[in-house]
Design a binder for these strands. Structure first.
Lengths: 212, 212
DNA sequence: TTGTCAATTGAACAGGCGTTCAGGACAGAT
DNA sequence: ATCTGTCCTGAACGCCTGTTCAATTGACAA
């Protein structure tokens, strides 16, 4: 039936549980139950709940990392997260990520940093091919865009409620269904604030370089 | 010293604890300890931990709701969350909100809906005064903008790490310090995607209305 | 002074938690 | 057939959890 090794089954069950209820809200016995093993076996394989959590972090990060880049189509232009959404091995991983982004795992933080670096890279590419407007603070721009995308995933429950779009699924898989989100994003990223307003706010917040 | 009623002290301590470690990660005794009372008194005043959590939800929502609108300056144009950041009674409330946005409280979801409605309203105002570009899907645009702003708050840890900006504090209080974030936002919201790219993606995702 | 009522404590409870451990089951090597 | 080692279980451990409750305090009314 299930030819995964017990260790892998436990790990996957833990990822699902953690994604559903958070780490603190999940007991070792729940995980064992979902994996169809005893609580003792969980300890045998991972030593402690905390170790198991670290193993989950690493596995999720590794999986996403390995499948990243395989889906950097045109959609990636406005959505740095599309790459991991498209092929992260299903919703559980994404939902796990969404949870873990908030309560702070070093492995996931590292993954975020990599997403930012990737974003910087292909935004630069987009600039040279004329798809994206240039900027004189590309790094900051990529960071904010990446975190906005990740934030939408973290708040997927609210996106679902307000817009009916499932941010844990590949947006390009069913374009019609994800249109409300994508269209709004395009609206915002092609000109939400007028140039005059921008100049006003730029002065108010300083233009980045010290001018004094 | 502390002239708050014990009930209020417990509630405030709970908000801090929940903001720090999440609801599941906080024990009643911890809360009692921080409030300087016994665990029994917590139960006496709130009946159960779950009731206490609901009381926190309601108090945070009520506080934010009451102080909202007092700070709808020009900053609100690109930041629907600025109003609650500016005067929500300090970081604890915002951090509590950030936590609760993820593990789903009905009261907080309601609050999000209100923020969206507010955003729709003053974006419309911005359009009439020429500060903001018009859109033919104002609702969706306001939703996404609001969730992006909230997402940045939820991921404040990462914003801090990558950009050095504290999203739990009022951005307008120290413009120089929050400049990296604000400047990037302005970059993105005044034209990130070129018009040609937009047309390309609009076709790919359908333009909202059925055309067939 | 006595009575009343709310605020508050600390001990106690049952149950769940993470973790440990002795031992069973079963494979492959000798 | 016996040994060896790994996988795995179920019972047990001590601790911590949320919750209950009798008892104490202190303020205010009669």
């Amino acid at each position: 039936m299930d030819d995964r090794t017990a260790r892998a089954r436990i790990r996957d069950a833990a990822i699902e549980c953690f994604a559903d209820s958070g780490v603190a809200g999940t007991s070792v016995r729940e995980i064992a139950g979902r994996a169809g093993v005893s609580a003792g076996l969980v300890m045998h394989h991972f030593g402690s709940k905390d170790n198991l959590r670290v193993a989950c972090d690493e596995h999720v990060a590794a999986t996403i990392r390995s499948q990243k880049g395989s889906a950097m189509g045109q959609g990636a232009a406005f959505d740095p997260v599309s790459s991991l959404r498209a092929s992260a091995g299903g919703p559980p991983l994404i939902r796990y990520l969404a949870r873990t982004l908030v309560d702070g795992s070093p492995h996931v933080a590292e993954l975020v940093d990599e997403l930012v670096e990737d974003a910087i890279e292909y935004i630069e590419l987009g600039v040279t091919t004329g798809l994206i407007m240039p900027s004189d603070r590309p790094r900051e721009r990529a960071i904010v865009l990446t975190l906005w995308s990740l934030g939408s995933v973290v708040l997927h429950e609210h996106v679902e409620r307000l817009l009916g779009v499932d941010m844990t699924a590949d947006l390009t898989a069913d374009p019609k269904r994800s249109a409300p989100y994508v269209q709004a994003v395009l609206d915002l990223l092609t000109g939400f604030i007028t140039p005059t307003t921008r100049e006003l706010l730029t002065q108010a917040f300083g233009d980045g370089q010290e001018t004094r």
